[in-house]
Amino acid sequence: MLTTFISNTPLLASIVITLLTITTYQFAAACQQKWQYIWLNPMLFTISILVPLLLLTEINYQQYSEKTQLLNLLLEPAIVALGLPLYQQFKQIRFYWREMTAILILGIVVVIIVSFMLAMWLIKAPEIAVALSLKSVTTPIGITLTEQLHGDSSITAFAILIAGLFGALLGPQWLSFIGVNSAKAQGLAIGSASHVIGTAVLVRKSAEHGAYSSVALILSAVLTALISPWLIPLLQKLFY
């Protein structure tokens, strides 16, 4: 019945499915705002509600993604909007930008190589290896880059989510354990490994933690975008 509804009234179905996605997401975001649980991530929550719903109603992913094209279209301008924090953070970091850029480049190159090789060794699927090597970058940019490099963007989205939760929950303790205690170093490490989720948690520690974490978030996104289009094809060549 539902599938006929979708094929007979495509526009109405589009509106209903898009609104359902937005409402579920907003509900989860409101809950997280209220209770402040890290694991109550709006995206995770929305997907875990919608996936069973799609399975129950026998709407396949192809149909779902066609009906939510509007959200996909808005992703491009949303990424452009990240230019404002980029501009703001660059004003903040002008004292250290050389050191920070060098450290982040090193970290990004190491993590892309290790992720790609580990994934090829354990899973042996190139599109999954691409997806996993782009997991240390904020979600919208990770997804865009993965698609450009013919990886599987849904795996990227999940890997970024898991990396975010892991770093937010265990990152600060781990860093203290290995003797990394300054707000700068903790902020940069968590921001580049755990992006928005990590930054949201770290900002509660101190404003300086939060500032450096968002610097790392933005700067590592730009650097990954510059590095990955030549590093990943190189790795792909190595394996074929």
């Binding site: 975001a29 997907i47 919608l50 808005l74 992703l75 949303a78 979600t139 849904s154 989205a157 999940f158």
Partner: peptide, 13 residues
């Protein structure tokens, strides 16, 4: 902007 990422994540299905 997070809501724009949901369709990509749904690919997990």
């Amino acid at each position: 902007m997070g809501v724009c990422l949901v369709p990509a994540g749904m690919g997990i299905i």
